[in-house]
């Protein structure tokens, strides 16, 4: 059975932090992803968030509040990133990012369930679709080149990815609804 990250055996704050961060990083990354459209920027925001959270960890009195607390730090870093990239295309206004972040912080338990459901939903995708999605989302993929290798237009590849995302979203919602019914 996995150890409860909120009840670490060791009291070394370093270990407690590392355990909490490792445990909650996936849903924090998903939280950040909603406000930052570019995977490289997500990495930057996550790195800054981890550094600030590390420095301020001693101020967190209740470790069960870690995800919410980390979201607050990430929210600030998302807004900072927005200011750095304010002149880029498709940068959402600050008030929208704040709304997305505030509501997203409330959804952290759901986010964890969604990520768990996604494991199964992605595994259930037809192999070719799964491989294509993973190739498209790999760090250095250039969509134009991938489209050329697949003999598709770039536009049709984006449409296909949108369909895959939508299928996965529906699969996640179906899975969570079934689990809710069972419990």
């Amino acid at each position: 059975m996995a150890a409860d990250p909120a009840k670490p055996a060791a009291q070394d704050p370093n270990e407690v932090f590392l355990r909490l961060w490792t445990h909650h990083e996936p849903e924090l990354r998903a939280f950040v992803r909603a406000g930052v459209p570019n995977a490289v920027e997500v990495d930057e925001v996550m790195q800054e968030t981890s550094l600030v959270a590390w420095r301020k960890f001693s101020s967190l009195s209740d470790v069960s509040q870690f995800p919410r607390w980390a979201c607050l730090i990430a929210r600030y870093e998302i807004l900072m990133a927005r200011r750095r990239h304010a002149r880029d295309r498709l940068v959402l206004d600050e008030d929208i990012l704040a709304l997305l972040a505030d509501e997203g912080a409330e959804e952290m338990p759901v986010r964890q369930q969604q990520l768990a459901a996604l494991e199964h939903c992605i595994a259930k995708l037809p192999r070719e679709r799964r491989e294509l999605a993973l190739a498209a989302y790999a760090p250095a993929t250039k969509m134009k080149e991938l489209a050329a290798q697949l003999g598709r237009t770039e536009g049709s590849l984006y449409q296909l990815l949108a369909r895959i995302r939508q299928e996965l979203l529906m699969c996640v919602e179906r899975t969570l609804a079934q689990e809710a019914q069972k419990s």
Binding site: P26, A30, A34, L100, R111, L115, A136, Y137, P139, V172
Partner: peptide, 16 residues
């Protein structure tokens, strides 16, 4: 948008 971003984050993690 948050749920779709979660899908994206998961795919990026698996791809990496």
């Amino acid at each position: 948008l948050r749920t779709l971003s979660t899908v994206e984050a998961k795919l990026e993690q698996l791809a990496a």
